[in-house]
Design a protein around this nucleic acid. Structure first.
Lengths: 335, 335
DNA sequence: TTGTAAGCGTTATCAA
DNA sequence: TTGATAACGCTTACAA
């Protein structure tokens, strides 16, 4: 049915070994031979069989991307960055989602990886997740995105710093009763959430401000959760004048809660998020933006280096910068 | 390095053929033999080599998902539906993005597909796209999502109907000067855009309303484009009292333009979209929602049937229903 | 620079 | 129900 390397070899009057070398661009092939082989392969409409190539060479030419969510903004944006790099490198991208609170019944990823891919990219899976442990224990080339883990290369922002920037921005505007919308009450170390909590606490303390436990609410990093959290904050005796939401999506929900209470973000209550979500500009939300596409790109490039599919030096742990985007949702206290 | 099927066969005292049959759950294997083989395979931590299996069997166990965008809501949501089905079926999902206006320099998909996957899922690539033609001409099992093409199975909504529902909703509210934000001035037939234009025109005509070319603007299905388009509509001598945006994202941009002009959606001007985007509830946008996750799920299931990896009857063309979600952005003309 | 030939680890046919 | 064994289509020493 299909044209094989033998057909090409036969037609070109050379051995299959020469065809293989010529087509893969290996050295030690006469250029005239090479171009003739290429021509004939093209004429015959020959395409290499990946399975055969993989079996013979031991390389799969594939990278797995492991992610708890596919449709959420942060994750799909990271994936698009990864994809552009892998496509350029001629690598296949295998997409596999893993268990998350919304879809708890997924196949564990580790067994699906062995012998199937040359490397793994993991997006924002908590470092204490047992499924992640199993993947790490596979010992294959990998790189984490959005979280860090001792001994595993990763690409992240400085989450402590991002939270510091956000909180400091509110402090600089004169706010003193500052509320916070975190993900959940208990956080694992080395997660974005944990570090953001720390950054917030640091700046509050440095500014001599109390972190009132009544001004802390939890939004589970969803829009609906952010809405509930802000609603909770608004029921306090003394409302905050500003709120730091640890993600833009929670901030969106918070905005909705504000409007439901007849309040306008940036008017009665200032609001800041973290992410630089596509919609944050539209919603006029001040945010500490992270370069999400780059997160994916950089991690993919680092992984290719690890695998030996690209030149360069392997970096253990990359931290990319964030920047504050000031918009209408934050204003000076007096205004 | 790796445990092979021979190691398992040796340890179990059977032939490799028996191991292969036992592990794949084929019939004609003594159940005692099977469980012994399974046990030994587990003890040895044996995993099959996909490359070898694929080479020998001719099946790749992989499906390619071809998409112009990864990070946009519609596309990532479709992909998540596809992924859940494929993961359940034990199929690998190869993600490849193709050229789009934002990223014009992509590898053409067709050559990357041959011998590599058992089937292809294509998300919302215009039917007249030459790259799509090449993929279709490969003659492999495939299914389209969001567009239809003669002779190729597809899963879509009824776009004419969706636009009719949206337009009729505005008409029912008493609006007569109705503007429209389309994608672009020229549209290929059999695209969502084309059909939505038709549905709009039909209802306008049935209602005895003029489609004023001055009340037509183009937003290229982006937020920014929708904003520009609405701005253009607002500069008309006689503004529309209602606007139909052919996608929610364009409607979001339109909302922003309204606010920039001191107008409130649903107050001075009613606004309706199509999609049922995650953010539409948050932004209180009336929309004709399509079941996007299902689009992906159904297409994936249909493809598995085509390939023979799942039981069922292959459907040529599936149309899934939409529903109108009325929110605050549309109100009666008098209000 | 090119050719020979031994794998790579399965599946599937045929026979037992 | 099980076993031998010939593919599957390529890569890669090693030799020439």
């Amino acid at each position: 049915m299909g044209i094989t390397i033998r057909d090409v070899a036969l037609a070109a009057g050379v051995s299959t070994a020469t065809v293989s070398r010529a087509l893969r661009g290996l050295p030690n092939v006469d250029e005239r031979t090479r171009s003739r082989v290429q021509q004939i392969a093209a004429d015959l409409d020959y395409v290499i069989s990946p399975s055969a190539s993989r079996l013979a060479s031991g390389r799969t030419g594939s990278i797995a991307v492991i992610t708890p969510y596919i449709a959420r903004w942060f994750f799909s944006t990271v994936i698009s960055g990864v994809e552009s790099v892998l496509q350029n490198a001629g690598m296949d991208l295998l997409l596999m989602s893993v268990s998350n609170p919304d879809a708890p019944r997924r196949q564990p990823p580790a067994p699906r990886l062995r012998r199937r891919v040359d490397g793994v990219l993991v997006i924002a899976v908590p470092p204490d997740d047992p499924e992640l442990r199993d993947v790490v224990n596979l010992g294959m080339p990998m790189s984490l995105i959005g979280v860090s883990l001792q001994g595993v290369p990763s690409v992240t922002i400085d989450d402590v710093l991002a939270a510091r920037i956000a909180t400091q921005h509110l402090v600089n505007l004169g706010h003193r009763r500052i509320g916070v919308i975190a993900g959940s009450a208990i956080t694992a170390p080395f997660t974005a959430e944990h570090d953001r909590s720390r950054g917030f606490a640091e700046v509050m303390q440095e500014a001599g401000l109390q972190t009132d436990p009544m001004l802390e609410a939890f939004g589970h990093f969803t829009v609906a959760g952010g809405e509930q959290a802000m609603t909770a904050l608004l029921t306090q005796r003394q409302r905050p004048t500003a709120v730091f939401a640890m993600s833009d999506e929670m901030a969106f929900g918070a905005m909705r809660a504000l409007r439901a209470h007849g309040l306008t973000p940036g008017r009665e209550i200032s609001l800041i998020g973290i992410d630089g979500h596509d919609m944050s500009e539209l919603l006029d939300l001040t945010t500490v933006a992270q370069p999400v596409v780059d997160l994916g790109r950089i991690a993919a490039e680092a992984l290719l280096v690890q695998i030996g599919a690209a030149a360069g030096t392997a970096a253990e742990s990359v931290i990319v910068p964030t920047h504050l985007s000031v918009r209408g949702s934050t204003t000076p206290l007096d205004a």
